[in-house]
């Protein structure tokens, strides 16, 4: 019934990075991807925090999956995830307070990132620890890549800088919308357009058929007709 095949460890890792990228392909975890990616630094901090939570939770869930009863598994996953989120929240606040302030409530909201719970339920709870870590690291890296793409686009257009370093002269005209929350949607639109174009390019172009698309047939009409 269910298709079974061998998945190599490399594939477990890399599919999350690119082919099944959580944000760009699966469109999961969009809330932080849209909300806090207005600068590269914010994107990186959010990406790293999520990476840490994801890898930590997957490791624990895969390790203790035998001891977690089926009936309460979601509660247990949430408990594990929430613990890691709180730790990430405290550490960010202590180490990089400015970025913590900029990210605001979105650090705490990592706990409801469906991508993380999804990896626990779909992968970590069914797989050996090593593979679960690989999967979580790949997905987490894919999340970081996506956030950096969005953060880069938004910071370059919105502030004219990259990681705070001005790229253009003083006459640069900032795209104000890119810093605002709405800019997240536009940046995601840009990136999805490029991805769609990339995917389409590899396919054979479909030639539209011209109307009428019927068949031509020859009918022999004898003298005296049918009637």
């Amino acid at each position: 019934m269910s298709p079974r095949r061998v998945v190599s460890p490399e594939e477990v890792f890399f599919r999350g990075v690119w082919r099944e990228n959580p944000v760009l392909i699966q469109l999961l975890g969009l809330c932080p991807a849209l909300a806090v990616t207005n600068t590269v630094a914010n994107s990186l901090a959010m990406g790293l925090a999520t990476f840490f939570v994801l890898v930590g939770s997957s490791t624990l869930v895969a390790t203790f999956k035998r001891f977690i009863p089926r009936e309460v598994r979601i509660s247990a996953y949430i408990l594990v995830i929430a613990t890691f989120v709180t730790i990430a929240d405290l550490v960010l606040n202590a180490v990089v307070p400015e970025i913590h302030r900029a990210l605001g409530a979105f650090i705490a909201l990592i706990v409801v990132n469906c991508m993380i719970l999804g990896r626990q339920e779909a992968f970590a709870s069914k797989q050996p620890v090593g593979r679960a870590i690989l999967d979580a690291a790949g997905t987490g890296l894919g999340f970081i890549v996506a956030l950096l793409m969005m953060g880069g686009l938004r910071e370059v257009l919105g502030y004219g800088s990259f990681l705070g370093v001005p790229l253009f002269g003083p006459s640069f005209e900032p795209w104000i919308v890119m810093i605002l929350p709405a800019g997240g949607f536009f940046a995601l639109g840009f990136i999805l357009l490029l991805f769609g174009w990339w995917a389409e390019r590899k396919k054979e172009p479909v030639r539209p058929r011209r109307w009428p698309h019927g068949v031509t047939t020859e009918v022999f009409v004898g003298e005296g007709g049918a009637d």
Partner: peptide
């Protein structure tokens, strides 16, 4: 062997 990931 394993089941394919839920996504694909």
């Amino acid at each position: 062997e394993e089941r394919l990931p839920a996504v694909s």
